[in-house]
Design a protein around this nucleic acid. Structure first.
Lengths: 204, 204
DNA sequence: GCTTTAAGCTATTACTATTAGCCGTTTGGA
DNA sequence: TCCAAACGGCTAATAGTAATAGCTTAAAGC
């Protein structure tokens, strides 16, 4: 019996691809094994089980997503960066709905969990986008959470075909980006007014 | 053998309660049967299977959610109504995470699907909230979608403990409501400027 | 009170994940 | 180069899942 040359990464990649094709809910160890031309129990030499496989796909996804958002915001600022990040995330989710589904409802088990690091790396470019708006530092966490909520919510509703009406989803998406951009500008102006009264004013 | 007096509604309610307690992913026909003091196959006299049960829980959830949002916005307008709707939705999801999980990734099969009607009823109060801001009618669908995305995204991230930092999630939530309220006001002003040039101006 | 309907049941089938243990391949050291 | 140990595939078996078939009896209607 020849070896298939598998390892954890290959099993994870096969599982991720399969999840995108048939949906995360339909993902099973047997189907992953079948795709790899191997019997089901063989997978357990590389991953600990379905839960472990799901977790590995999740980490892969968060990593890929973070890189996509980072690439899309490099060298851009404010609205350009915001739009780049938003479109990158939306595009990734549309292209990899099965992978993305593995990320909902999981959280790091501890600070040394590789998922924690991946999540932090993925959120960094979002923070960077907001940095360009020069918000009140106290507001930044709130803004990241809002941005994340909106993008995550939009993407999940879109892939499940949650938007009923025929109105263009693309137009709604652009409208939403504009809405956030305008709101962040306004919030930044408020913050700038606050900064003016400080001694080390940036205007001088 | 005495009868348990079950029907589809009772099975659905038991399933919904169980999903809230143990999580939707752990929901099974056997556990629902156990909770109702009945053998598993007996459930099939009332629901067609796990998929059907899930669908029924989903419809129940969307209905309850719509009622909660409607009650929370009755007699209020603009920011008050917005905050009421947002808090009602967030509160429901926190209280019924299992029920809510059944609603992600499902969509009506057709126009006569009871889920379609329930969804429309649930979205009506959201539209009503936005009506108070007197947006450009062409923007209203976009605004509903944005609002839905943000609230859905925030709620799902919160119940999965997706927000890492220690910064208060409550504060972030209020900040987000303010952000939207301010943005809608600004968008409404733009729309009002557009209306001014029309003959039947509302100012007169 | 009898008949019909329907709600429970047991038994069974066909999946699923997972573990135990075998056996041949590959690899690394003498 | 050969041998041993580690490792990656396998078969077989266990337990839990959804779902169906068909029996039996309780409830409802004439």
């Amino acid at each position: 019996m020849p070896r298939a040359g598998l390892d954890a990464a290959a099993v994870t990649e096969a599982g991720a691809a399969l999840a995108d094709e048939i949906g995360f809910a339909q993902l099973s160890m047997s189907l992953v094994a079948e795709r790899l031309g191997v019997r089901t129990p063989s997978l357990y030499k590389h991953v600990e089980g379905l839960a472990d496989l799901t977790r590995r796909i999740c980490i892969l996804t968060v990593t890929e997503l973070g890189e996509a958002v980072r690439d899309a915001t490099q060298g851009r600022a404010r609205r350009d960066a915001l739009e780049g990040a938003a479109r990158a995330l939306r595009g990734y989710v549309k292209q990899h709905p099965g992978r993305y589904a593995t990320t909902v409802g999981v959280r790091p088990t501890g600070p040394d969990d590789p998922l924690a690091a991946a999540l932090e790396r993925a959120l960094t470019p979002l923070s960077a986008v907001l940095l360009g708006y020069r918000l009140d530092p106290a507001e930044e966490t709130h803004a990241v959470r809002m941005l994340r909520s909106m993008l995550h919510g939009f993407a999940t509703l879109e892939i499940s075909d949650g938007f009923q009406m025929s109105t263009s989803v693309n137009t709604s998406f652009t409208w939403m980006i504009d809405f956030i951009d305008q709101g962040l500008k306004a919030a930044a102006e408020d913050a700038a007014v606050g900064r003016e009264v400080l001694p080390q004013s940036p205007q001088l």
